[in-house]
Design a protein around this nucleic acid. Structure first.
Length: 558
RNA sequence: GCGCCAGUAGCUCAGUUGGAUAGAGCAACGGACUUCUAAUCCGUAGGCCGGGGGUUCGAAUCCUCCCUGGCGCGCCA
C-alpha cells in the first residue's frame, strides 16, 4: 500500500512542479510514513516541508497544491494539510480489504521481496576457534548471523552461510599441549595445576580419558619434557577435530546450518596467503620495516599500519584474513557480511582497508558487531570465567531453556547493545516469558480453525470472503500492520538488523491478542464470520513467516 | 592518553535514519475466565531522552564540548 501512496505523491509533486515551471530533477526522495496518531489518517508525508526550502514557498501553500492533486485519486478519500505542513492521507477502506485479499492470495510467499535482486551475499558468523565448546556469546552470534541470512534470503538475496575455522596459529599449539598434559596427567607423569596459559576446561580432561581408553597409553612417552614438541601435532589435531565436531553438533541443536566450513590452515597450506600478499605488493601497499612486512592500511583510513609478516618470518592472523576475504570477493559475492564479537571492533578498519586496497568497494563489506551477553538467574549474575574454564556452554543453555527461547532471547536486542540473558526467565513456562507470547498468538488462531473444522461450523458471508465486513478500527489497524510487514522486512535487510523482525512479531501478536479478547470470530450461535476468518488466516500466515525467519517453531497447540 | 559502542520510566530495552503529544515488556496498583486456549486482555501510575552549547520550520535522532559505563589500542588470534 505504501508503494501505491508513494506513487500518488510522486505524481502530485510532478504535477505541481510542472504547474510552477520548476524542474523535478534533484528533488528529495518521497518519504511516506505511518503517522503516530491514528486520527491523522493512514499515511503521511513531509514532502511539502522538504520542498519549501527548494521552492522558496511556505510549506502549507505547497501542501494545499499537492492536496488538490491528491484528491483526484480515487483511492484517497481524505487528504488534509496539518501542522507545519504534513500531508495526511486516508485510504478508502475498500483498498484495505483488497490489500488483505492480496496478502491472503500470496500465502506463505507474502513478503518475498526482490530488493536483493538476486545479489549474492556471504554471511560469515560464529567462526570460533576450535579450542573449546561454544559458549553463550557464540550463541548470540549464531542467532544473529543465521536470522540475518534468513532475512536477506527472503528479501531476494542469494545467501550463503560460512564458518571460518581459525585452526592455525598459537592457540592451536596451546590446545595440543593442554590435551597432552591432561593425557600425561592420567599416566601419572604430570601433577598439580595445569600450567598458566593452558586451556583448563574439563572437556580436555574428558577427552584425555577417552584417548587413554580407546588408544592406550603409548601415544607419547611419559618421559617427554613439557617444552618438547613430541606428539604435539597428533594431540592438536585430535583435540581440534573432536571440538569442531562438538561445535557442529551444538549448532545443529541450535538450528543453525552452514553451507561452508572454511579452514584457516588451508589458506596457509595452499599458498593463498602468499598470493594475497603478492597482490598487495604489486599494488605497492606493502613495505619492509624493522625486519617485518607491513601493510599500509593507514592510507585507507586505518589509524596505523599493520604487520602481515613478522620479523621471525611467521605470517600474522591478519595476513590470512586478507587472503580469506580476497577469496570471498573472488567467489563473486556482491555483499560480504561478517558477524563478530564487539571486542574485535578495532579490527574493522584494517580489514576494510585491505578490501579497498585489493580494489573492492568498501561499501560492499559490512561487519556486524555483536555485544557481550551476561548471564543471570532471577536477576543475580552468573559468573563466567574463560580463564578458569568455567563458562556456560551454548549446549547447556539450549538444553536448559530450549532452542526457541534461546534464539528468541538473543534477538530481542539490537546487536550492538549488551544483552542480559536470564536463564530462569527464558525457562519460565509462564507469561513472563516473551517467546510464548508470539507462539501463543499463532496457537490461538490455529485453535479457532480446529474448532471450525471439527464441528463443521457454518461460515457466513461471501465465498470466498472479501473482507468487506471488516470495518472496526482494530480490524483496519490489523490489516495495516500486516501490510506494513514488507516495509519492516525490507528495512531489516537494508540495515542488517534482525531484531526488527522480533519487535514486529511482538507487536502483531499483541494486536491479535487484544482483538481476540474483544471480538469473536465464532459467535454465540456457532456461526463463523467469513471475513474475520480471512483476517485470522492472514495473521496466522504472517506470524508463521516471522517465527520461521527467527528460526522459532510455530506451534498449533500450546 | 587515543579510538569504537552505549547512556531513554524503578528494571530490561524499542524508537520507522530529522517529524506531530517519546513507546513496549517486567515490577507496582485496580479490574476481566459458565467464552474461539487467562501462556491472554483492559485500566492507573511512572520521563530534564546523561549534561551544556550549536545547526533549522522541527532534535532522543545531526555537529561540538564535558560526565558515566563497556570494549579496543601486540610483530596475539
Amino acid at each position: 500500500m505504501k508503494k501505491s501512496v508513494t506513487r500518488y505523491v510522486e505524481k502530485a509533486v510532478a504535477a505541481v512542479a510542472a504547474a510552477r515551471g520548476v524542474a523535478v530533477a534533484g528533488l528529495p526522495e518521497i518519504a511516506i510514513e505511518l503517522p503516530r496518531e491514528k486520527s491523522f489518517g493512514d499515511f503521511s508525508s513531509n514532502i511539502a516541508m522538504q520542498l519549501a526550502g527548494r521552492w522558496h514557498d511556505n510549506p502549507r501553500a505547497i501542501g494545499a497544491a499537492l492536496k488538490a492533486e491528491l484528491e483526484k485519486e480515487d483511492d484517497l478519500v481524505e487528504v488534509t494539510v496539518a501542522g507545519p505542513g504534513f500531508i495526511n492521507m486516508t485510504l478508502d477502506v475498500a483498498c484495505w480489504h483488497r490489500c488483505l485479499r492480496e496478502i491472503a492470495a500470496q500465502k506463505s510467499d507474502y513478503a518475498r521481496l526482490d530488493c536483493g535482486a538476486g545479489q549474492r551475499v556471504l554471511v560469515e558468523f560464529v567462526s570460533a576457534n576450535p579450542t573449546g565448546p561454544l559458549h553463550i556469546g557464540h550463541g548470540r552470534g549464531a542467532a544473529v548471523g543465521d536470522v540475518l541470512a534468513r532475512i536477506l534470503s527472503r528479501a531476494g538475496y542469494a545467501v550463503e552461510r560460512e564458518y571460518y575455522v581459525n585452526d592455525a596459529g598459537n592457540q592451536m599449539q596451546v590446545l595440543g599441549r593442554s590435551l597432552r598434559w591432561r593425557y600425561l596427567e592420567l599416566l601419572g607423569a604430570r601433577h598439580g595445576e595445569i600450567p598458566e596459559g593452558y586451556y583448563r576446561g574439563e572437556y580436555l580432561a574428558a577427552m584425555a580419558r577417552d584417548l587413554l581408553r580407546e588408544q592406550g597409553d603409548a601415544l607419547v612417552a611419559v618421559s617427554v619434557a613439557e617444552e618438547d614438541e613430541v606428539g604435539l601435532d597428533f594431540f592438536t589435531r585430535t583435540a581440534a577435530d573432536a571440538i569442531l565436531l562438538g561445535i557442529r553438533d551444538d549448532l545443529k541443536l541450535f538450528g543453525v546450518d552452514f553451507e561452508r566450513w572454511t579452514s584457516e590452515k588451508e589458506f596457509f597450506a595452499s599458498g593463498k596467503v602468499d598470493l594475497a600478499l603478492a597482490e598487495l605488493k604489486e599494488k605497492g601497499v606493502l613495505y619492509q620495516d624493522e625486519g617485518a612486512l607491513w601493510f599500509a592500511s593507514s592510507r585507507f583510513g586505518d589509524e596505523k599500519d599493520r604487520v602481515v609478516v613478522r620479523a621471525n618470518g611467521v605470517k600474522t592472523y591478519f595476513a590470512s584474513d586478507i587472503a580469506y576475504h580476497r577469496e570471498k570477493y573472488e567467489r563473486g559475492y556482491d555483499l560480504v557480511v561478517d558477524v563478530w564479537g564487539a571486542d574485535h571492533h578495532g579490527y574493522v578498519p584494517r580489514l576494510r582497508a585491505a578490501i579497498e586496497a585489493l580494489g573492492h568497494c568498501p561499501e560492499s563489506f559490512a561487519a556486524i558487531l555483536v555485544q557481550l551477553v551476561s548471564l543471570s538467574r532471577r536477576g543475580t549474575p552468573v559468573a563466567m570465567s574463560t580463564r578458569a574454564g568455567e563458562f556456560i556452554t551454548l549446549e547447556e543453555v539450549v538444553r536448559e531453556v530450549g532452542r526457541d527461547a534461546a534464539r528468541y532471547f538473543f534477538l530481542t536486542r539490537r546487536s550492538d547493545s549488551q544483552l542480559e540473558f536470564d536463564l530462569e526467565l527464558a525457562k519460565a513456562q509462564n507469561s513472563d516469558n516473551p517467546v510464548y507470547y508470539a507462539q501463543y498468538a499463532h496457537a490461538r488462531i490455529c485453535s479457532i480453525f480446529r474448532k471450525v473444522a471439527e464441528e463443521g461450523l457454518e461460515i457466513e458471508g461471501e465465498t470466498p470472503a472479501l473482507g468487506a465486513g471488516l470495518t472496526l478500527p482494530e480490524e483496519l489497524e490489523l490489516i495495516k500492520k500486516l501490510d506494513d510487514f514488507t516495509v519492516v522486512l525490507e528495512a531489516a535487510a537494508r540495515t542488517l538488523e534482525p531484531h526488527r523482525v522480533t519487535y514486529y512479531l511482538d507487536d502483531l501478536a499483541a494486536q491479535l491478542h487484544s482483538y481476540y479478547n474483544r471480538n469473536r470470530i465464532i459467535n454465540e450461535e456457532g456461526k463463523v464470520s467469513g471475513d474475520r476468518l480471512l483476517l485470522m488466516t492472514v495473521i496466522r500466515q504472517v506470524l508463521n513467516i516471522c517465527l520461521t525467519l527467527l528460526g522459532v517453531s510455530a506451534p498449533e497447540k500450546m
